[in-house]
Structures are given as structure tokens and as C-alpha cells.
Nucleic acid binder design. Sequence first.
DNA 1: GTAGGAGCTGGAGTACGCTCCAGGTCAACC
DNA 2: GGTTGACCTGGAGCGTACTCCAGCTCCTAC
Lengths: 134, 134
Amino acid sequence: MNFSIAQAAARSGLSIDTLRYYERIGLVDPPARDSGGRRSYSEDDLGWLEFLTRLRTTGMPIRMMREYARLRHGGVGTAALRKQILVEHRASVRERVAELTKCLDVLDYKIDHYDQIERKHAHLLNDLPQEATA
Amino acid sequence: MNFSIAQAAARSGLSIDTLRYYERIGLVDPPARDSGGRRSYSEDDLGWLEFLTRLRTTGMPIRMMREYARLRHGGVGTAALRKQILVEHRASVRERVAELTKCLDVLDYKIDHYDQIERKHAHLLNDLPQEATA
DNA sequence: GTAGGAGCTGGAGTACGCTCCAGGTCAACC
DNA sequence: GGTTGACCTGGAGCGTACTCCAGCTCCTAC
């Protein structure tokens, strides 16, 4: 099964321009071409794109993804290096999650503060004499 | 207690240039000045900066922080709007954490795959006749 | 055989969030 | 009173990751 660039874009969630851009900078290997010279993406290509988008989602910089992509071509001999990249990246993602969780606490705290303001307002209104709220 | 821009930078973790930049774009109010015309940050200023850095850490775009900053000047009447911004932002941060957690699973999976390759290699080496490993 | 739509290339442009710089002021210390 | 160092301003420059464009080719459908 092969896919046009539009289909690959739809499946990967990337734009057509981004797909060509990734190819240009060496993030993805140039896909096969059909008889008319158009890109024809394989399932494997899409699998790699999906993994790339995961790495991007987690904030891996493109130059690191490029390094990883380069190592893939080196075969099993580069497995240890590739693993190292992923392990280090995983650590940084975990850190990031911890950081976000801490910020979520601050947001909760602030929002709670606004809730209290609202309650106080409602309270004041309720305590007014009947005529004043009319 | 007041702070020079260098001290404010050290405490907030932002650079001096970034502090001036934030002021220029209306993210922070112009701080007081000392007799020599230099910025003099108050505790309140630093508190706001700390909150801002939390929002930045969680990826809130600057224009949204600016909107929030603008609303602060509106007093208690804008509390509901400010709360809304925070509530919406909290939702997006939670989403982001969920997304990262999913990506962490993929990373775990991949790393586990590399572990298996390593074990297979070690195994092969162990199974070789004694002379071949010398 | 021609109109329309998808895709092609190389290169320029954009959004965001800083970061750096030149040229000047000011206060303090020697 | 001269040097040093922190700070000032307005404005230019930069890195990242796309995004857009002009001008062209190719296939399909009528």
C-alpha cells in the first residue's frame, strides 16, 4: 500500500509542506516516486513519520531527530547510540512532565483564589436586603 | 526591599534583556526607578515575574499572558475573565501532560526494544566457543 | 485537446521569543 | 578627575520550525 503526499499528510497530521521540508533537511528518506515523479510513501515511511511526530510532540529538537535518523542508516552497530538518545530524551520528558505538574498546582491554587472571590461576591449579594437586589 | 535588574534576573531566572523585553511589550509594568534612573523591582514585581515564568513554562503564548496582564489592571471586575483564561490554560496543560505521558509509553517501548537487541547480542557472544571470544 | 487539480522545485517569507549591540549616562572608588 | 562597571535606550539580528509562493509538469476527465 502506497500513499500520496496528501494522504501521508492526513495520516501523519503534518502538512504537505512540512513533509517536503522534513525530506529536505534529511529527517526522512526521500520516498519512492510514482511514474509521474510524485512521492509515494510506504507503510514504513508512515511508521517513521509517526515516530518522528512523537519525538516532536515531546519537544525533541530537529537536529537531534536528524542525528537519530542518521544513525538508523548505520544499522545494528548504532543501536547503542540510538538507545542512548532515547533514554536521555525520556529523562528530559519526565522532567518536563514533573515541571508541568508543579505548574498545574500553581494554576489550581490561583483558580481556587478566583473561586473564593466569586463566592465572596455571591455572598455579599445574598446578604443584601431584598429591595437592593431588585 | 528593592532589587536591581540584575537581582531580579537572578531571582526570576530570566535574563536582563528578557526583563526589559517583557516590559517593552507590556507583560510587566514599568518598575520604579532609583535616583539614577535605574529600574528598581519590588517584591510584588518579583511575584508577578514568578507567576509569569510559570505560565511561560507551561507554554502559554505571550499574547495570552499579555491579555491576562492587561486584565489585572481592570481590578476585581475582570476576575471572571482572568479565571477563565487560567481555567482554559489549565485544561490545555493537562492535555499536554496526557500527550507527553502517551509519548513516554512509546519511548519506553522503543527503549525496551533496544534492550532486547543488546541482550540478544550478549547472548550470542556467550554462546560462542571459548577461543572465538579471545 | 483543453481545463482542472494535485504535485513538483528552489527559494523567500513568517511567527515567536528572545538576544545582542552601539553609543550614552551615572555612581563609586582610587 | 579618570576609570570602571552596572545600567540605560532604540533598534537590529537571530534560531527554530515551519509556511508560502511562482512557475512548471503531469494525469484525468470531459
